[in-house]
Design a protein around this nucleic acid. Structure first.
Length: 776
DNA sequence: ACGGCAACTTAGGATCTGCATC
DNA sequence: GATGCAGATCCTAAGTTGCCGT
């Protein structure tokens, strides 16, 4: 099992966060051991043992059938597809007008471009500035339950996991919200936008293209006063649906089975092809992956050919297909400029069509508009379902969400129909479907990270974290006190909170055994915590175990011991807790507070503190200032300790050392006059292993070469350790309030683009306006 | 008060890109 | 030009949380 990722990061982090914590946990690794025992506690959080998974086969088997079944059902389109009702004509086509793809690349939206040509689009941009009003303006007509009804999610339909497609709505009653929405926006007009465009009338006036192109780029939604109800995500939504990957084109390359070429049926060939692309990856090290794949492969083979003879994985040789894939890749790399340009153009056309949605009159980027292509499931860790083929999605699998009046996008695959159309403005997704491998998993197409909907929720996240600042003292005092409560449940809760606060462990929901085995706070098991003497070493990562020692205060130490007492290693440490329970309690202490808020809060407050600690002087160059900034950030990212890249270096070193040992042994033998037999071996990736030379001098030379490489790798490792900016991006994206960095940059005259890359800037446009003295 | 599902966020591997180097 | 990298970006698995029904 793996401990939740976040956690590991946490550990180190803690150090920095110390400041704020009531009980300072100073400690650096070094110090740890020294501390007096009682105080110290060292929960090792994470020991991770990789556990082997249950038999892979079984899940696979079941899965498949399901899929199939599902497919059939889907067929029924259910739902009335198009509520189109009124007018609406499509803007769709038009929008595509030209526009620049280029723009797209740039941050926000380049929407402007299009304006020129198509009416529709332009309108959008122009709107941006002024339009806000526009959007709201009319809307009237659909009055009826327009959006309202939307709320119905398809939910009702589904009852349990029935594959039943969506039936849309069961109409759940619209909750009141919708109502509200409706009334508020009295004037609303629905998708005015398009109309405008089409008509070309009024709106255009103001839009006047000219500059607009440039200005429009930004729709400053964060400046809008928003009294609107949070639960209503839009009043009008139009988009062009989703894109499906092209159908599989058989290449005819054969599989070698037991030394003989076999022509595979297209379906099997497709599956074999997906598998072949992973031949040289770590996925091959997971037996489960191969097992699951092969089971599915055999099934499809026997379905297509009653006399299928391919039954043993070990007799399959995919190298021809692999070779073919490599050739194709090579070919792609060598495309001529014209070919590349042509492709680029095609891509732009596609983006133009699918990459945008019109939300309340504003053109906003869509996230992943391409539905997940078929392929093998790549679970992380030792996932029991790794390697199972994900089936190809068809329009029938997909439900779209758009305005009631909006035009329903044409189904991109002829002869097929959308699985359903809903009008739910209480949710932010544009399209959804069920995962074929994990039926309980639902996939979505969302608006882009820089869209209003996503941005608003980001702001909300950070303001909740800011709010925690006001309550943290009391919360900490409370749980510190409660750690001594006689009621075990409260005691557990308090202890868990301590862990969540200090270690940034995730909440830790329950999971079934069909999932990867990871744990978070509430699902920690007795075996994960080891309360040892102070001498334990910290941060030892080897093999599959992640080991970490953290100093905790006396009470926590005592409590953990108590909770472990009398339990089996596999028992839950906090047997009385559930994430629901813990979150409910948190909510009682502060509105909107949940376990994950602590991570955001701690990460943000720490950065702000670290930045404040950096002594900045006016004569520093930007470069020097950046060093300071990175150092402040590092305090946190360092927490990560061994990350993937470091792990890789470790592996390299280990491999080299092993090789060295072998050579040394070989050398010894040779010197003694016996030359050992060296069987033909194959390395994992199927390449022939080179035999070791029998000449002592050569062997020695090889050894010294290896020594050199080891030294080099070690050096690299140190360097990396030092810089460790790793995952900085992640924290910037997810946890740290961007305004902290922006304010710092302004205060120190550092250009924003030195701190935030393009993606970040696009994601946080709302943070760019803060003043230099803004404080979290 | 709980469990399950839907919706949404976050993490981290896979891929792509641009750039430095050989 | 081919290579190798690292950072940016894409993609989607795997979390969390709210809500709703029982």
């Amino acid at each position: 099992m793996r401990i939740l990722a976040g956690q590991s990061a946490t550990l180190r982090v803690e150090r920095s966060w110390t400041v704020e914590t009531p009980m300072p946990m100073e400690t650096d690794k070094a110090s740890i051991p020294v501390v007096k025992e009682e105080t110290i506690a060292q929960p090792d959080s994470a020991a991770v043992e990789i556990k082997e998974e249950p038999s892979a086969a079984k899940p696979a088997a079941e899965e498949k059938p399901t899929t199939k079944r599902k497919r059939q059902e889907d067929k029924s389109p259910a739902k009335k597809p198009a509520p189109k009702k009124t007018n609406n004509k499509r803007r769709i086509g038009s929008s595509s007008s030209d526009s620049s793809s280029s723009s797209s690349s740039d941050s926000s939206d380049s929407s402007s471009s299009d304006s020129s040509s198509s009416s529709s689009s332009d309108s959008s941009d122009s709107d941006s500035d002024d339009d806000k009003p526009i959007a709201k303006r009319k809307k009237a007509e659909p009055k009826k339950t327009p959006t309202k009804k939307t709320p119905t999610k398809k939910t009702p339909a589904k009852k349990k996991s029935e594959p039943t497609p969506k039936k849309e709505a069961a109409k759940k009653t619209p909750k009141k919200e919708p109502v509200k929405a409706a009334k508020e926006s009295t004037p609303k007009k629905r998708s005015v936008k398009k109309e405008d465009g089409e008509t070309g009338t009024e709106t255009p006036v103001k839009k006047k293209r000219g500059k607009q192109e440039e200005e429009e780029e930004q729709y400053k939604w964060w400046l809008e006063s928003d009294k609107e109800d949070d639960s209503v995500k839009w009043t009008s939504l139009e988009h062009n649906g989703v894109l499906f990957p092209p159908a599989y084109e058989p290449h005819g390359v054969q599989l070698m089975y037991d030394g003989k070429p076999v022509k595979l049926p297209a379906e099997a060939e497709e599956m074999a092809t997906y598998f072949s692309q992973y031949l040289e990856t770590d996925h091959m090290k997971k037996p489960q992956f191969k097992k699951n794949f092969f089971k599915a492969f055999k099934d499809i083979l026997s379905e297509k050919d009653k006399n299928n003879k391919i039954t043993k994985f070990d007799l399959c040789d995919f190298s021809l297909i692999q070779k073919h894939l490599k050739d194709k890749k090579e070919e792609r790399k060598n495309r001529t400029k014209e070919e590349k340009d042509k492709e680029k153009l095609e891509k732009e056309m596609i983006t133009k069509k699918y990459g945008w949605a019109i939300v309340d009159g504003h053109k906003q980027k869509v996230g992943n508009y391409l539905v997940e292509p078929p392929g093998l499931f790549l679970g992380r860790g030792d996932h029991p379902k790794a390697g199972i083929p994900k089936r190809r999605l068809m329009p029938e699998d997909v439900t779209l969400n758009l305005s009631e009046g909006a035009k329903v996008p044409e189904c991109p695959i002829s002869g097929h129909e959308w699985g359903g159309i809903v009008h739910n403005n209480n949710v932010g997704w544009l399209a959804t479907w069920k995962d074929s491998i994990k039926p309980e998993a639902i996939k979505y197409v969302w608006l882009g990270a820089n869209s209003r909907v996503k941005g608003k929720s980001d702001i909300k996240k950070f303001s909740t974290a800011q709010n925690l600042k006001k309550h943290i003292k009391e919360i900490r005092e409370t749980y510190t006190k409660e750690m001594k409560d006689e009621d075990d449940k409260i005691k557990q809760r308090a202890t868990a909170l301590w862990i969540i606060d200090h270690l940034a462990l995730r909440a830790g929901n329950e999971k079934d055994d069909e999932s990867a085995d990871t744990v978070g706070c509430c699902s920690l098991r007795v075996e994960h915590i080891k309360c040892t003497e102070p001498t334990t070493i910290e941060g030892e990562a080897d093999g599959g175990r992640y080991y970490n020692v953290v100093k905790v205060d006396k009470q926590v130490f005592k409590n953990l011991k108590q909770f472990q007492k009398g339990k089996e290693p596999s028992d839950e440490l906090f047997d009385q807790l559930s994430t629901n329970y813990v979150n409910a309690h948190l909510k009682g202490m502060m509105e909107g507070l949940t376990a994950k808020v602590f991570r955001t809060y701690n990460a943000s407050i720490t950065l702000e503190k670290e930045l404040a600690n950096m002594k900045m002087t006016d004569d520093m160059s930007v470069e020097e200032k950046m060093i300071m900034y990175n150092r402040a950030n590092r305090e946190k990212s360092v927490a990560k300790g061994h990350d993937a890249q470091m792990g890789k270096l470790d592996t390299v070193i280990k491999d080299l050392e092993e090789q060295k040992k072998k050579l040394q042994a070989h050398l010894k033998a040779v010197k003694k006059g016996k030359i050992p037999e060296q069987p033909d071996e194959e390395t994992e990736d199927g390449k022939k292993k080179k035999k070791m030379p029998d000449d002592p001098a050569k062997i020695e030379k090889q050894i010294s070469l290896i020594d050199e490489r080891i030294a080099k790798t070690e050096h690299k490792k140190t360097e990396k350790d030092d810089l460790k900016t790793v995952s900085l991006t992640t924290s910037k994206i997810n946890y740290i309030d961007p305004r902290i960095s922006v304010a710092w940059a302004k205060a120190n005259d550092v250009p924003i683009d030195r701190i935030f890359n393009k993606t970040l800037r696009a994601k946080f446009p709302w943070a760019m306006d803060v003043d230099a003295d803004w404080r979290f």
